[in-house]
């Protein structure tokens, strides 16, 4: 059955159809404007040599792939948000872009070996150490396990705190789907169902003074109109942290209660000191003589 699925995907590929989420179709969709589909080209070139596949689909401000490539095979251009364009023919498969892409969204594919196998190189930054010869779980972009693959090679690239490049051998049909290798299987326990949950709906809002939301609501309901007034009425935000953690939720609560916008309530009048300071320090006048 697995084989049949792979055959089907292989057929789709030949027909130029999308190969699933994160596949060529998605890239083509993102790359509008009559530019060449780099995936198609990469796919072809990968028959001869290792080549980078740039799976960058969101126009975010980012260009390290361009500077990473010493061959000039990846271009972002003046618009830092533009999607990168790669030239598979120019790519020498060095893997620097794979290591330096902040999104970890570049891979090398190499189909030059025969026998229906492809070597895919993915970036890796997890704790379990990959070594050549090991078996790893191979996953797609959604984290779905495609199966197992043999690690062919592990190398480090990208500065002092390097990223590992893990080359894994997979069936050729997975070549464009593999997005990562996993060495650890997390024990993700299924969360248990809780029947008939009825919370009180109440909780502390001011951690320091231990004042519950209900108390704040009560004070707000009795007409206090500002954060300062609410503080006076309930001591909310007057504790050790000076409201640094309850200010925002309180303002939202009060705004809701008074039917006003948060912005109308204002930021208040913060007073020094912004951090606790010992009397001995605040009152000290002896400062070591320093040059300013």
């Amino acid at each position: 059955m697995k084989e049949r699925k792979e055959r089907k995907e292989s057929k789709e590929r030949e027909e130029g159809k999308a190969t699933g989420e994160g596949g060529r179709g998605a890239a083509r969709d993102a790359l509008q404007g009559g530019r060449d589909d780099p995936w198609t080209a990469a796919w072809e070139v990968s028959r001869r040599k290792a080549v980078a596949v740039v799976d960058c689909r969101q126009e975010i401000p980012c260009d390290p792939c361009e500077t990473a490539c010493r061959k000039g095979a990846i271009r972002v251009g003046d618009d830092v948000c533009a999607l990168p364009i790669s030239e598979p023919e120019t790519c020498d498969g060095c893997g620097r872009c794979v290591a330096l892409c902040p999104g970890m969204a570049i891979y090398l594919i190499d189909r030059s070996a025969d026998g229906g196998k492809a070597a895919v190189t993915v970036p890796y930054e997890m704790g379990e150490e990959p070594r050549a010869g090991m078996e790893a779980r191979v996953v797609d972009g959604e984290g779905k396990e495609l199966g197992r693959g043999k690690i062919l090679e592990v190398r480090a690239m990208g500065g002092a705190a390097a990223t590992l490049l893990v080359k894994v051998e997979v069936p050729e049909t997975w070549a464009l789907k593999v997005r990562g290798v996993r060495l650890r299987q997390m024990f993700i326990e299924e969360p248990e169902e809780v029947e008939g949950y009825r919370g009180t709906g109440d909780c502390l809002i001011c951690r320091c003074e231990e004042i519950a939301r209900a108390e704040v609501e009560k004070a707000a309901g009795s007409g206090f109109r500002s954060l300062a007034a609410l503080r006076r009425a309930s001591r909310v935000g007057l504790g050790y942290c000076q409201g640094r953690f309850c200010r925002e939720p309180l303002r939202e609560e009060l705004a809701r209660k008074c039917g006003r916008g948060v912005e109308e309530l204002g930021i208040g009048s913060p007073r020094p000191p912004l951090r606790p300071v010992k009397i001995s320090r605040l009152g000290g006048g002896d400062v070591r003589d320093t040059q300013f």
């Binding site: 951690r207 320091c208 231990e210 050790y240 942290c241 640094r244 953690f245 951090r275 606790p276």
Partner: peptide, 14 residues
């Protein structure tokens, strides 16, 4: 009630 580190940057005083 038990309290523990919440901000780790000296702001929350927990």
């Amino acid at each position: 009630e038990a309290r523990g580190p919440f901000c780790m940057v000296g702001r929350c005083t927990e």
